[in-house]
């Protein structure tokens, strides 16, 4: 475990906590894409299949449980909670996310570390995570109103990805044969998706103006 990875995991945890906090306290999920949250729940379900079969560390197990619980409870809130579900902007959150799931599944069948169910599901979760933010970014473009917590949510997610890239660089130089092309390529693609959002987020923060994404 290195400082970049720990910081990345904590930032990732923070993004989820900020989102749960938003939904739980103000009982609203306005501006949040349910599609993205569903994709994240699938990502964690597919990636943490080995939760009970192969123990890495207490930290690893606890964090997996936290990510699973939080992603599924966010989906539950947005779909089932009688108050929150009414604030869900379903008219704008129309990105057909199965368009993302199928290609990721096919790619995982083609490119994986080992053609076993667990490895294919792991690769699928890596590819799906790379594109999971897409419906959320599309929703932000459409509604153009980015409230603070939603902006912070996307910002923390992007920061977690940048920190993970630093973690891979660190591990590459400190651990022999640490090569994970699948995670690296998908991780870089995912981080690039955030790049333009980062630009507008930082510009708006610097000029102290409301965050507006160009149409």
């Amino acid at each position: 475990m290195n400082v970049f990875r720990l910081a990345g995991d904590m930032t990732h945890l923070l993004s989820v906590v900020v989102l749960l906090l938003k939904i739980h306290t103000i009982k609203s999920c306005a501006g949040i894409s349910l599609k993205t949250q569903e994709l994240y729940a699938v990502v964690f379900a597919a990636r943490y299949l080995d939760l009970f079969v192969h123990f890495v560390s207490l930290y690893n197990t606890v964090m997996k449980l936290v990510f699973l619980a939080s992603s599924f409870s966010i989906v539950w809130y947005m779909k089932r909670h009688k108050i929150v579900r009414r604030t869900y902007d379903k008219d704008h959150d129309t990105f057909r996310h199965y368009v993302l799931v199928l290609p990721c599944l096919l790619l995982a069948l083609l490119i994986n570390e080992k053609f076993t169910f667990r490895e294919v599901m792991w690769a699928f979760s890596i590819y799906l995570e790379a594109v999971a933010i897409f419906p959320q970014l599309v929703l932000l473009q459409r509604t153009r109103n980015i409230d603070n917590l939603t902006g912070q949510y996307v910002f923390f997610l992007g920061a977690y990805r940048v920190l993970y890239i630093l973690n891979w660089i660190y591990r590459y130089f400190t651990e022999p044969h640490f090569v994970h092309w699948i995670s690296w390529v998908a991780g870089i693609v995912q981080t690039l998706l955030y790049a333009d959002f980062f630009y507008y987020y930082i510009m708006s923060w610097k000029n102290n103006v409301k965050l507006e994404l160009p149409a």
């Binding site: 990875r5 990732h12 192969h54 690893n60």
Partner: peptide
């Protein structure tokens, strides 16, 4: 045997 490749990252 090579230690099974572990996915030790989240």
């Amino acid at each position: 045997p090579a230690e099974e490749k572990k996915h030790d990252e989240l």
